[in-house]
Design a protein around this nucleic acid. Structure first.
Lengths: 240, 240
DNA sequence: CGGGGGCTGTTACAAAGCGTTACAAAAAGG
DNA sequence: CCTTTTTGTAACGCTTTGTAACAGCCCCCG
């Protein structure tokens, strides 16, 4: 699995963001290399066979837009731009910027994953559309979570309403079944933020999610509590 | 598709505008050449077989109006003039300027595309080539939005009336499908202005648009709300 | 075996975000 | 000008989400 995993290059001058993305993407089974500016970026391009570049708009020296253009000029490597919120953004978005996709900061990590998948799929010329939408469905223990419509269907066929947060949390679990996920990890995966001390928002979200998907919330079978560790999704997950 | 795409010449002394327009138009499948003044313009006219000239009014050396007249004198190449905001504009419009169309700066990019299409169609008499953006029609989820007539046709064939604002908003969504667009971005894309604090005009416009295009506005499937993020148009958009 | 002390589950409540209605202002079109 | 349409503001209520608080549970220790 690892040697077929797409190799992502993250170009950002903010060390914190580089690290965060590197950790996040590695967790999601991508290979990751980072660069802090255009020079390092082109060096990495020589050293590796890359699949996707995630490029910050604001960079020391040559800016991301210019780098994106140069990249585009001599390769068809897909590019996702990160744009800081603020003045320039609107205009750049209004007039296309030559990237395959863009994401305004601060972004939802799950959103980034979705865009990456879309861009990679497009770049590989693989069939999209219906197949892609279908492949967005996840099945577990008789339940079905449709990635396109965000609809959750119970084993008996009834639809269960999920709030956005509940959906993200459940998705995070389904992406990492049979693995203990700490509250920090879950918060990162589902919300893209880091936990403050005494932050128990995940506990509550878990509680609410259990109420909807567990037969007996008092004795959860799908989302187990790992005392001192976090939570673990125990069911088999199948992509259809 | 590239060798039948109309070839546009952008004449403006502002490098930023040249670049932005070049990227934007290229993105919309036009071929683009730029010039910064009359000299470069006539050189480009010799070098290429062009389809349309976008000409800034204010230029170093010979101004746009004069260039437009000379262009008109010895060719039937269509011209769209860009006029800076201000006092002169009205007079220039009042006087004949010889251009096929004009656009006051700052302009809405979509507006420019629309004018370009109109001018090109007029100049060619026939839609001899597939227009670069498309023939003006966008399809999504069974709906059709005709860019030329601004008519929106429902899947069942009935026409739905859209106000100008609703049309612009829908267009903005259709230009950026499957992307989370913040209220700021939408306001800029659809109205060309920036949001004031507590500005919720977009919410209302979205609500009104939903009432017209969503089967069940209570549970929107086309325009999704992204809490804390904005809105996202979720359907696949096809240019026909 | 009984009692802490730290974790966790849950409830109640408050804050924020969003949808919508009603109405006023503005624009468009006689 | 006056009417009609469109657009924006204000306001109300619902939903979602997070914080606080408390109750229960588990495990270790004496």
């Amino acid at each position: 699995m690892t040697d077929t995993a797409p190799h992502i290059l993250v170009v950002d001058d903010d060390r914190e963001i580089r690290d965060l993305l590197a950790r996040f993407l590695t967790r999601h089974n991508y290979r990751v290399t980072t660069a802090r500016d255009g020079v390092e970026m082109f060096r990495a391009l020589d050293d590796w066979k890359l699949d996707l570049v995630i490029l910050d708009l604001m960079l020391p020296g040559e800016d991301g837009l210019s780098l994106c253009r140069r990249l585009r000029a001599n390769s068809d490597l897909p590019v996702i731009m990160l744009t800081a919120v603020g003045e320039e953004t609107d205009r750049i978005i209004g007039l296309e910027m030559g990237a395959d996709d863009y994401l305004p900061k601060p972004f939802n990590p799950r959103e980034l994953l979705a865009r990456m998948k879309a861009v990679l799929r497009r770049a590989q010329g693989l069939p999209r559309l219906r197949e892609a939408e279908n492949s967005g469905a996840l099945r577990f223990a008789g339940w079905t979570l449709d990635g396109a419509t965000r609809a959750l269907t119970a084993p008996d066929g009834r639809d269960v309403e999920l709030s956005a947060g509940e959906y993200e949390l459940l998705s995070a679990f389904l992406d990492h079944p049979r693995r203990v996920l700490s509250r920090d990890q879950l918060l990162d995966l589902a919300r893209g933020r880091t936990a403050a001390p005494f932050d128990r928002s995940i506990d509550i979200q878990v509680s609410r999610l259990r109420r909807k998907i567990e037969e007996d919330p008092k004795e959860p079978r799908l989302i187990k509590t790992v005392r001192g560790g976090g939570y673990m999704f125990t069911a088999e997950v199948e992509r259809t």
